[in-house]
Simulated assay, not measured.
Amino acid sequence: MNIDLSGKTALVTASTAGIGFAIAEGLARAGARVALNGRTSSSVDDAKKRLLAQVPNADVIAIAADLADADGVAKIREVLDEIDILVNNAGIYGPQDFFETGDEIWERYFQVNVMSGVRLSRTYLPAMEARGWGRVVFISSESALNIPADMIHYGVTKTGQLSVARGLAKRMAGTGVTVNSVLPGPTLSEGLQSMLKDQAQQEGRDIESVATDFVMQNRPSSVIQRAATPEEVANMVVYVCSQQASATSGAALRVDGGVVDDIV
């Protein structure tokens, strides 16, 4: 399958590392003009250098904007008037007991994980509809279906993303614009590697094997019985953004390694 996104402009939020960077790289390799986003100028400039080292001929834009509030979306709009592909990857996570999770934490998670995608979709979807082509992808999580007992606040926001995406897919029905969600499971991104680094060094093991143990201890229902790579998640996203995926809309597509024990 040859995915060609030449002539398309893609915005990938929170794309300076991990899954977001892998998605940006995948879209760039497919020929798309890619806008990287992060909270600081230094992080996006560094990500741009790394992406150009991987894909030398890529057309890359770096936009520093914190998407925790509407001002961040306004900053992006100042640089990008219109886009063809929107990947809502911005998100925060962290374990905390329900009874110790105050309103301010719930509000922060909702603003970053849900409202950033709502605001950007509201900003860019009308022009996609007018042109008769567009792709919007929400990067949710298997935690949207398997709500973690130690991260209820996080799981709720990931479920919220599924609802927004499904509703928007219906709103865009018949326009040529698709809206989907992609649900990663345990993924060996920089965050997980950093968390497991000390253990790997202490035990004299490679990070992949330590990550495999982590998955089997915390997500024993995994079918692949290992952590996915960011590139494996990105592959699904790039496909969903392609012309070849034009009949896929309103879907919640799992790249969770089979963690969710469900046949649909």
Rank of each mutant, 00 (worst) to 15 (best):
Ala53Cys: 11
Asp262Ile: 15
Met236Ile: 08
Gly72Glu: 05
Arg122Phe: 12
Thr9Pro: 00
Thr248Met: 15
Asn2Gly: 02
Asn235Gly: 15
Val259Cys: 12
Gly38Asp: 07
Glu142Phe: 08
Asn89Trp: 07
Ala169Lys: 07
Gly26Pro: 00
Val73Leu: 03
Ala165Phe: 07
Ala74Trp: 01
Ile85Tyr: 01
Asn218Gly: 13
Val237Trp: 05
Ala62Pro: 12
Cys241Leu: 03
Gln217Phe: 00
Gly31Phe: 02
Tyr239Thr: 01
Val260Ala: 12
Leu86Val: 04
Asp206Phe: 06
Pro220Trp: 10
Thr187Cys: 11
Leu125Cys: 08
Val182Thr: 04
Asn37Tyr: 05
Ala47Thr: 02
Pro184Asp: 01
Leu86Glu: 01
Val60Cys: 03
Ser42Trp: 01
Tyr154His: 14
Lys49His: 05
Asp45Trp: 02
Gly134Thr: 11
Ala165Gly: 08
Thr40Lys: 09
Asp103Trp: 09
Ala53Ile: 01
Gln217Ala: 15
Ile139Ala: 03
Ala10Glu: 03
Ser242His: 00
Leu27Phe: 02
Arg226Ala: 05
Gln193Ile: 14
Ile139Lys: 04
Val260Pro: 01
Arg171Leu: 14
Leu86Phe: 09
Thr157Gly: 03
Thr175Ile: 06
Pro148Ala: 06
Thr13Arg: 06
Phe21Cys: 10
Gln202Ala: 15
Leu52Thr: 13
Val264Asp: 12
Ser143Pro: 00
Asp150His: 13
Ala14Pro: 09
Asn218Thr: 15
Phe110Ala: 13
Gly117Cys: 12
Gly20Ala: 09
Asn113His: 06
Pro126Ala: 06
Ile105Gln: 14
Ala127Asp: 14
Gln202Gly: 11
Asp84His: 14
Pro220Tyr: 11
Leu253Cys: 04
Ala17Asn: 14
Leu27Cys: 07
Ala247Gly: 01
Val112Leu: 10
Val210Asn: 03
Ser246Tyr: 05
Arg254Asn: 10
Trp133Ser: 04
Cys241Asn: 09
Arg39Ala: 07
Asp261Gly: 11
Arg77Gln: 13
Val136Ile: 15
Ala62Trp: 08
Ala165Asn: 02
Pro184Glu: 00
Ala24Phe: 09
Val255Asn: 09
Ala245Thr: 04
Lys158Asn: 04
Ile207Ala: 10
Ile224Asp: 03
Gln244Lys: 15
Glu208Trp: 03
Leu67Asp: 07
Asn113Val: 15
Thr123Ala: 15
Lys49Leu: 08
Asn2Ala: 08
Gly258Val: 13
Arg131Tyr: 02
Thr187Ala: 03
Val118Asp: 02
Ala28Arg: 00
Tyr124Gly: 04
Ser143Phe: 08
Gly155Tyr: 05
Asp84Asn: 14
Val156Phe: 06
Ser249Gln: 01
Asp4Val: 10
Ser222Asp: 13
Gly258Thr: 12
Ala32Met: 05
Asp69Trp: 03
Ala65Arg: 04
Lys8Ser: 10
Arg171Glu: 14
Gly250Ile: 12
Asp81Trp: 06
Val255Asp: 08
Tyr109Asp: 11
Leu11Gly: 02
Val87Thr: 06
Lys48Pro: 05
Gly134Met: 09
Asn180Val: 03
Ala247Ile: 10
Glu82Gln: 15
Ser222Phe: 10
Asp256Phe: 11
Ser116Gln: 07
Asp262Gly: 11
Tyr154Ala: 15
Ala211Met: 01
Ser209Cys: 12
Pro56His: 05
Ile83Lys: 09
Val73Tyr: 01
Thr175Leu: 10
Met115Asn: 10
Ala169Pro: 07
Gly191Tyr: 04
Asp150Ile: 10
Gln96Asp: 12
Glu82Trp: 07
Pro95His: 00
